[in-house]
Design a protein around this nucleic acid. Structure first.
Lengths: 332, 332
DNA sequence: GAGCCGCTGGCAACCGGTTGCCGTTCGCGA
DNA sequence: TCGCGAACGGCAACCGGTTGCCAGCGGCTC
């Protein structure tokens, strides 16, 4: 923790004014090439590094962007985080990652702490109200992920399309009754998914029922398995964790997936391909979403409020879905 | 993004000097109760919030601590992150989380960016050399996690004890040959685990062989399954992901776990209890480690360099380990 | 040869707090 | 009544850069 050299030290040793040193680094071209070379040389010798704090004070830019997720433990965010990190790094900023622990209150606290320090904010899976989000947006540029907030730059997968494709898949297999396992009530995605499942069900003549809400975790899914009506032949779960928990719960009670129950999840998390049977799930371009969010944030010069960006989803079919079981227990 | 009120605004409106406003917030007690009350009132009215950047410039404290992990996707870090977050929050600081992507080079870059902005740094699973870590410690207080660096505050699970208990468990079941699947060469934990497996093996009369290194991922474990000598009856894997991948790989080739091969992992990640069979694994008090690390960092007033803190591990026995298969294929 | 312009470097104000030091006021003991 | 110290508020310097403005200088045009 040796004392850092300042522009004043460099200036003195190089025989120029501090402002010249400053310009050498922050405004190259503004200073004569030879002078700049000398300054750089002295700076290197002294191990000078510009003090980002002091810089931030005058420029009002810290070079840090925040990414808030509703739960770091949720693997869905993994690719979002990676995408965001890559974009931030490419743009020369640091990313400040924080966890709102599935709580609007905690999310608010986190924002309170981080907002003053950052140039912008990506809210992935915010549990706050639109009003609260808009309030934050009044302090710093905000990009909303996984959700659409009017008049705020938003990036979201096409939840409706995803839910529709899940239901079409099940209907195509011959299912006529489908249960939807709801996630957190504060989840915007949950609302969109349920609504789309409901509507698509009506269009396809599939009877849909809603169960829950359940915590968006494996444990939540296990609990759902206990409460699942016996006749249920097909389930769309809020996300993959719930779906995985459900499958396990069913299996532990002696049921079989997909023979007795078909299960579809959302997000295509890594583990979806790990469990047995593999989980059929709705995949979103998570990495791309993370990257786009940060890019949007960083490039917001004219504060152009583009319309919400909705990205296509894709159904990944694995072993957890199959035609409903015949009444007879033996195959045809 | 309305203009924020400053101490000058508050001072003017309250009819006091800016320094009084400053002291009202940063040095309560230094100013008369009545004056303070008035200042606070005016501040509230104006929505004044102290500018953390400006504050950081003079106090040289940003109130941010960084936590660097080798891979955010690794569930092992999850509890560490949670523990660290809780401790940071309790201490009134913000946590800056970053990912070094299993690369010393990238880790270095990340540090370059974050060090200037933070009050201290927790390195969890650093892939850098001791020298590089010491260099960082010269710039900011550092606490090392999962590893011991001489003369630096270090917190690590008792890797040796963990590896020993794993091997004792296998030996107790009757295994006489055990393979160790190595992790990243730059991993300090890997070195400790292997060494302990080796030594314990010698003491217990168990023949141990080392395979790898493999990437510390499920995919790495699957690859290991392909390269596993046919006669192998018991395996200790670098971590749970590798162990899980191994189990899957074995199963896909028609092998059975634990009947044909017993498998032990490290870290007791969440998924260890999710796979079938459940994974026997060495658990470390991850959450506590994360919390202790941040606490150590924050409370480092006298820069007391306590000795390395080594925390006990605990073997969690699940279904992936069993006595070796008899020569006869039928049960006794 | 006068006027103008672009290139450079320096001066000094400023960003928004923090803090050492000083002066005033006031209570209290001698 | 005088002296002394504690309490309290203000002044101004400072943290380390950034930047608007100005001046000197050389070159070019007419």
């Amino acid at each position: 923790m040796a004392k850092q050299a300042t522009i004043y030290d460099v200036a003195a040793l190089a025989g120029v004014a501090p402002s010249t040193v400053s310009r050498t680094f922050s405004r190259p071209g503004r200073v004569n090439a030879e002078t700049a070379a000398r300054v750089r040389e002295v700076a290197a010798e002294l191990g000078y590094r510009t003090n980002r704090i002091a810089q931030a004070l005058t420029t009002a830019r810290t070079g840090v962007v925040a990414l808030t997720v509703s739960d770091i433990g949720n693997p869905y965010y993994l690719e979002i985080i990676r995408g965001a990190e890559a974009a931030a790094s490419a743009a020369g900023c640091t990313m400040l990652l924080s966890d709102s622990r599935e709580s609007a209150r905690h999310e608010q606290q986190v924002l309170e702490r981080t907002l003053p320090l950052v140039d912008g904010l990506v809210l992935a899976g915010s549990r706050m109200s639109d009003t609260a989000i808009r309030a934050a947006a009044r302090q710093r540029p905000v990009v909303v992920l996984n959700r659409v907030v009017t008049d705020l730059p938003s990036i979201a997968p096409d939840h409706a399309l995803g839910a529709r494709s899940a239901l079409e898949h099940l209907a195509g297999l011959g299912h006529r009754r489908v249960a939807y396992l709801a996630g957190p009530e504060a989840s915007w995605a949950d609302g969109m998914r349920w609504r789309s499942v409901l509507e698509t069900g009506q269009q396809l003549g599939v009877k849909v029922t809603r169960l829950g809400p359940y915590p968006p975790t494996v444990a939540g899914g296990s609990r759902a398995a206990q409460e699942l009506p016996a006749a249920t032949g097909a389930v769309v779960a809020y996300n993959d964790q719930v779906a995985i928990g459900l499958v396990r719960g069913i299996q532990q009670r002696g049921g079989r997936v997909p023979d007795d129950v078909s299960v579809v999840g959302f997000d295509n998390i890594f583990a979806a391909d790990l469990v047995l049977p593999g989980l059929t799930t709705v995949a979103a371009p998570a990495r791309e979403m993370g990257a786009r969010a940060v890019e949007t944030l960083v490039s917001r010069e004219g504060r152009t409020y583009e319309r919400a960006m909705v990205l296509p989803t894709r159904l990944v079919v694995r072993g957890s879905t199959a035609p409903p079981r015949r009444k007879s227990t033996s195959p045809a």
